[in-house]
């Protein structure tokens, strides 16, 4: 058995294989439901209605998608240049810390929101700059350093919430004081529980798309990602491109934390992110690293999580089914995309 390249993949092949990957994921979902002793069709139906069945459900899905759009964009930008930023979780918390530092009375309206957003962006960028400088200067693999920084950051946040940033009125819970009303992101439509973080996420996706497709930097990022040696040979400032990519990626991930604190929660706690940084990897890969695709896949992934939560309450299938399905979807999709370009032949 060996692989043979497919010269001109047909449209059927290009669309059929990813569709097949999604269909296979649905089959796995049904299998897991059977394993848990539930009716597979009922489980699928409950996930769907849990995510989209009511106005409340749709709003919950949109809210859950907001940080995922940011982290998905952060990963998509980095992975496109083959910069393996697995540290979106840490960068997210960097942005969240800034939102608290500047949003609890240090600044008033109208400066607090734009300034804290800008500083959050910078903080996330700086946090990713360290591993990337270690990579370009010393050749230290960024996968492990960015991963380890996630654990360091989690402990740092824990320290802040039990020390300098502890809410004196928090009844002993490790959480920060609440943001002032000026520092909160307003709702997009009065009366609908959806904050402007979602709108900013959409704008960010469009900006990233423009940068990637319409600017020299975007071209250089793709060149570095597809063949770093060729890019270097062509005289591209490869290291500078990687640093710029890191600044953009880290900044986007930080905005996820900033918007969760300023928009959704109003304070910082240790459970601010249930792994949004890691889930961003799934969001980006399912979108094939396309910035506008990230919006679609973030909504899909958020829907699976919200739907699985609702289904778990009524059908009793553990909510971790969502994490399993998304990991399965990721692996099937990567395989499916690869098989659009090669076929398996005997011999």
């Amino acid at each position: 058995m060996r692989l043979e390249p497919v010269a001109n993949p047909t449209l059927l092949r290009q669309l059929g294989l990813p569709a097949l990957a999604l269909a296979a994921t649905v089959l796995v979902a049904m299998g897991l439901a059977l394993l848990a002793g539930a009716n597979p069709f009922a489980v699928l139906g409950q996930i769907l209605t849990g995510a989209l069945g009511s106005r409340l459900a749709v709003l919950e899905t949109l809210n859950r998608a907001t940080p995922l759009i940011f982290t998905g964009l952060a990963v998509a930008v980095a992975f496109r240049a083959k910069l393996w930023n697995i540290g979106a979780e840490a960068q997210l918390y960097a942005g969240a810390i800034i939102a608290v530092l500047l949003g609890t009375g240090a600044l008033g309206a109208p400066f607090v929101l734009p300034v804290s957003a800008a500083v959050a962006l910078l903080a996330g960028a700086m946090l990713l700059l360290v591993p990337v400088l270690l990579k370009v200067r010393l050749g230290v693999d960024e996968v492990v350093t960015t991963l380890l920084l996630n654990f360091i950051m989690a402990l740092f946040v824990s320290y802040l919430l039990e020390g300098p940033l502890k809410d004196p009125m928090g009844m002993g819970w490790p959480k920060s004081p609440a943001l002032t009303p000026d520092a909160r992101l307003p709702r997009i439509v009065d009366g609908l529980r959806l904050h402007w973080g979602f709108g900013i996420a959409l704008i960010a996706a469009v900006i990233v798309w423009v940068v990637q497709t319409r600017t020299t930097l975007g071209f250089e990022m793709r060149a570095v990602g597809s063949n770093i040696r060729a890019a270097r040979f062509a005289g591209m400032p490869v290291n500078a491109v990687l640093v710029k990519t890191a600044l953009l990626s880290g900044g986007l991930a930080a905005l996820a934390g900033w918007s969760e604190v300023a928009g959704a929660k109003g304070h910082l706690s240790l459970d601010l992110s249930p792994g949004f940084g890691y889930t961003g990897i799934i969001v980006a890969m399912l979108a094939l690293l396309h910035p506008l695709g990230v919006v679609v896949t973030a909504l899909f992934v958020a829907g699976v999580f919200v739907g699985a939560d609702a289904m778990s309450r009524s059908a009793g299938v553990p909510t971790y089914i969502a994490d399993m399905l998304l990991a399965v979807a990721l692996l099937f999709m990567v395989l499916g995309i690869a098989l659009t370009k090669v076929r398996v032949v005997r011999g």
Binding site: L3, W84, Y278, I281, M285, A327, V328, L330, L331, V334
Partner: peptide, 14 residues
């Protein structure tokens, strides 16, 4: 021959 980074992270999640 898929990306060892992406598949590895996927295997960890799964």
């Amino acid at each position: 021959g898929l990306s060892q980074h992406v598949v590895g992270l996927g295997v960890t999640m799964l």
